[in-house]
Each structure stands twice: as C-alpha cells, then as structure tokens.
Computed example of a mutant assay.
Amino acid sequence: MAAVKQKKSAMAQWVEAALLHRDISQSELARLLGQRLRIGFDRSKVNKIVTDHREVSAEEMLAIEEITGYPAPAGLRTVAPTDKTSAKVVQVALLDTVAAGKLKAPSSQIPVEDVPLLAFADLGRGDFFALTVEGDSMDRISPDGSVIVVNQADRTLVSGKSYVFSDRGKAAFKVWRPEPPRFVPFSTNPIHEPHYVKSKAEAEKLVIGRVKRTVLDL
C-alpha cells in the first residue's frame, strides 16, 4: 500500500513560495539570513524549514520577509515562536538620501504623512532614522543605493565607526579617524578625500548620528 504524502505546514509552504518569489536557492537564502541575523545559518537549516523539521522564529520570519519581499500570511505571525532572545522590531523612517562622497544638501522635503517606514530587528536602544546612500565613497560597506540606519542618540565618536555628519547645512557619510581628526571615505574609488576638522570636539558638533546598520537589496 502506497504511503500517504503528508501535507506541508503553512510555514513550510510560505518559505517555499518566498524562495520562488525572489527566485533564489535555499543556499542563497541561508547565506542572506546569516548576514542579516549575524549568526551561522547554512542550507540544511533552510531545508529543514521547508520539510517541516525545524520551526521558524519570529526574528527569522521577519528576516525572510525582508530578504524575499514576500510577506508572511497574518496567521503565521501567531505561529512563529518567540523567546527572551527574540529581537524587538522597530519601525524606522526612511527620510532622504545622504552623500557617500562630497558634502551634499538634503535633496527633498518629504511630507510627514508620506515618509516610508522600514522594519528592522535587533537595533538595540536609540533614536533611529534611515537614509539612502548616494555615491561610492563608502562602497566597501555601503554601496550606492543601499540604506543606512542612523542612531541619532549616539553621537560619541569612536575610531573606525561610521557616522552621518553635517557641515554648513550639507550632509555626508564617512568613517571617523582621530589622528589627525577627520572623516574618511572607505571606498574602492581612490578619488575620494577625507574631510578634516580641527578637533574631536568640533567634529562631535557636526555629527548627526552613528550608522548602526547598512542594508542592500540584491
């Protein structure tokens, strides 16, 4: 007598549909999940999800939605397990563009009601907004067109960390270096130059916030 094939769970079916929607393999999804969640995540874990041998946490479900652009059905949001380590999801306003290059004036004035909101997990404490990067002076970590999440509650300068700063009404995105005090590009393009300041104290007056995360859709 032939075995009866068991129907897959709604979660497994959704992950399979998300893979098809984005047209990526299980291995590629595993790689992107590992990058997004900052944990080890291999193809076997994705395979166990789509074969109903592994549950999906709330944080993983959010990450799969962000990676594939395929939203989970409302019913699954009550199914995904949560625990004390599950990340809090924060809605972050995507306000404008920022130059990864020469200083640039803000390009638009967006009405409050039209500001798009992006969902991020595991940002920690802070006051966040998001910007779209223009230019290639930071392309080693944030290529042109990527989105950066900025914590405007964190303005303390730390060497090697990235910041959005404003000088004479124009904003830019660069890495802080203290000796001599300057904001420097981190780019594959050698034409970009540092932005020098007189002192760390002066630089901190220019800082809008520290860049917490960079995101790029492939």
Rank of each mutant, 00 (worst) to 15 (best):
S27P: 01
A153W: 06
A63P: 00
V92P: 06
G169Y: 12
D136Q: 14
V98A: 08
Q6T: 11
F129I: 07
G75D: 12
Q26C: 04
R140A: 09
H195C: 12
L20N: 15
A10R: 07
V89Y: 06
A99N: 05
N47Y: 08
F183A: 11
G135D: 03
Q6P: 06
G75W: 00
A17W: 00
R43N: 04
L117W: 07
R54M: 05
V197A: 13
V98M: 01
L216R: 02
L95S: 08
V150F: 01
D136H: 05
A3G: 14
V158A: 15
F41V: 02
P178E: 05
A72Q: 03
V46T: 02
K88F: 08
K5L: 07
L157I: 10
V112Y: 14
L103G: 12
F128A: 03
A18G: 12
Q13M: 15
A121F: 04
V164S: 05
S146G: 11
L216T: 04
R140F: 03
P81N: 08
Q13P: 04
D42S: 10
A130M: 03
V90S: 06
V150D: 03
D144H: 04
K48C: 10
Q6E: 13
V147C: 10
A30E: 02
K5I: 13
V90R: 04
I191N: 05
V133W: 00
D42E: 12
F165E: 07
N189E: 08
S146I: 02
L37K: 01
L19K: 03
A201R: 12
I148Q: 00
L20M: 10
A121R: 06
K5P: 01
A63C: 01
A17I: 10
T132N: 05
G101S: 12
A2R: 15
D52C: 06
V112A: 11
G40W: 00
R31H: 08
F173P: 07
R210L: 09
F165D: 09
F129N: 02
L94H: 11
T97R: 11
V98Y: 01
R36T: 09
R54G: 02
R36M: 05
T214A: 14
L33S: 01
K200I: 11
E60H: 04
L62H: 00
K45W: 01
V184S: 12
S187C: 12
E202T: 14
L29M: 04
A105I: 12
R36N: 03
P178W: 01
K161L: 13
E193V: 15
D114K: 15
T78H: 06
L103Y: 10
F183C: 13
V79R: 11
K198D: 14
Q91N: 14
L76K: 01
K200Q: 13
